[in-house]
Design a protein around this nucleic acid. Structure first.
Length: 260
DNA sequence: ATGACGGTGTGGCACCGA
């Protein structure tokens, strides 16, 4: 069983690339972020023709998340329960998989602009809300996967310039403390369960040939619950789509799980 | 470097992302 996450930075622009990727990578579920479209503009039929059902929480221009899956999504929740949010950043669903059910939580975490800004304060509040809610979700659903664009580098290995970017956005002690707090709930960064190439990133700026120079950050994650940890067979970053014409600035992360 | 690139909505640009 394979689950993937991909910030597509506009599904309108990237739909052909998503369809191509799914044809080459027939995962059981694909979690998307930054759809940048409203629900009525979501390409339900094109994805259905590709074999995927969709649970969608869209928003015009900004944000927007979806879970594409081969089996139907049940018990769909939009946004963080107990945290009022104007923005469409979270969708959760239960999927029936071989051997049991899997709870998927897909998040487009707040960017935060810069430490000290109003947006950074919103990021901290949002992360507080997410953690409180996830604690309940984990209690109700032992087989849980938290995926998405976290907009945090978990540690210095996850950024091309740990010294130069120290305490800047995505690198602050506060953001990393939030990442650690999520881990402390009983979640594990699947990517770091395995030996990985040095300087592995999931995002590169469009500017200054950042991809070619591998000046990136690993900000897209798949975290698995304690019950799922023994089932994790692999976790990889697929850099291939970043080589496409008009690529997203993020690439997919894929986890492989043994049957539940 | 108040920059760079790319997406959106609208517009002859501004705002946002990371």
């Amino acid at each position: 069983m394979k689950i993937a996450t991909w910030n597509v930075n506009s599904l309108t622009v990237r739909l052909p690339q998503v369809l191509d990727w799914l044809a080459a990578n027939p995962v059981d579920a694909l979690c998307l972020q930054e759809l940048k479209l409203s629900d009525d503009k979501f390409p339900l039929q094109a994805l259905e023709a590709a074999g995927y059902q969709s649970a969608v929480f869209g928003q015009k221009t900004y944000n927007g998340v979806a879970i594409l899956s081969r089996s139907p999504a049940r018990n769909v929740v939009k946004n963080i329960v107990g945290f009022t949010d104007e923005q469409s950043r979270v969708i959760a669903a239960t999927l029936d998989m071989p051997g049991g059910e899997l709870r998927l939580v897909n998040g487009y975490f707040v960017n935060g602009q810069s430490p000290g800004s109003d947006k950074f304060a919103y990021k901290m509040k949002w992360l507080d809300g997410l953690r409180a809610w996830l604690q309940q979700e984990l209690a109700a659903h032992p087989n849980l996967v938290l995926v998405g664009d976290f907009n945090i580098t978990a540690d210095d290995r996850d950024t091309f310039d740990p010294e130069g970017l120290r305490e800047t956005i995505h690198h602050t002690t506060e953001e990393r403390a939030h990442f650690k707090a999520l881990v402390k709930l009983g979640l594990t960064d699947a990517f770091r369960m395995f030996e990985q190439p040095e300087k592995s990133y999931s995002w590169w700026d469009y500017r200054e040939f950042a991809f070619r120079r591998n000046r990136g950050m690993r900000i897209d994650y798949i975290l698995v619950s304690d019950a799922l940890k023994p089932k994790v067979a692999s976790c990889t970053i697929d850099k291939q789509p970043r080589k496409n014409e008009r690529p997203s600035d993020h690439v997919p992360v894929v986890v492989e799980l043994d049957s539940l």
